[in-house]
């Protein structure tokens, strides 16, 4: 359930960025980057997201996720290869002494704010 902490960190960083931006507007899109080796369970994050952002500035935002595949360099034979699990050995020499070069990302890439008109609520009359 560390995904809840991750969402809260995203919210905090987003709130600060929007405040610093100084313009009113709602967040239309938030783009994040998650490495496949970063330890994030997508189904958990997806499940928690609506409740966690419920009455915040991200309530109506579309969450766009860019998944970054895992890559490593073998410290023994220097070959580069794709890593799906942390215990995968080097396909060249079988070594487990790997340096992960990609796939541990956890980044907020960008926010798209939209200066949508908020329609003032007129007194409604029903026919």
């Amino acid at each position: 359930m560390h995904e809840l902490s991750i969402i809260q960190s995203i919210l905090e960083a987003t709130t600060n960025a929007v405040q610093q931006n100084g313009k009113p507007g709602t967040v239309e899109t938030i783009e994040i980057e998650i490495g496949e080796l970063a330890g994030i369970e997508w189904s958990t994050l997806e499940f928690l997201w609506p409740a966690a952002v419920g009455d915040t500035l991200l309530a109506d935002a579309t969450l766009q996720v860019r998944w970054v595949p895992g890559k490593a360099v073998c410290s023994d034979c220097s070959s580069s290869f794709d890593v799906r699990r942390l215990y995968d050995p080097c396909p060249g020499c079988g070594s487990h002494l790997l340096q992960i070069t990609q796939g541990e990302e956890l980044r907020i890439k960008s926010l798209t704010l939209v200066d949508k008109p908020t329609v003032a609520k007129a007194p409604l009359r029903w026919n």
Binding site: A13, A17, G25, K109, T112, D115
Partner: peptide
Amino acid sequence: PVKTVIELERDILE
């Protein structure tokens, strides 16, 4: 709608 893109490039666990 006027759209503004903020390039944050920030580590979530920063």
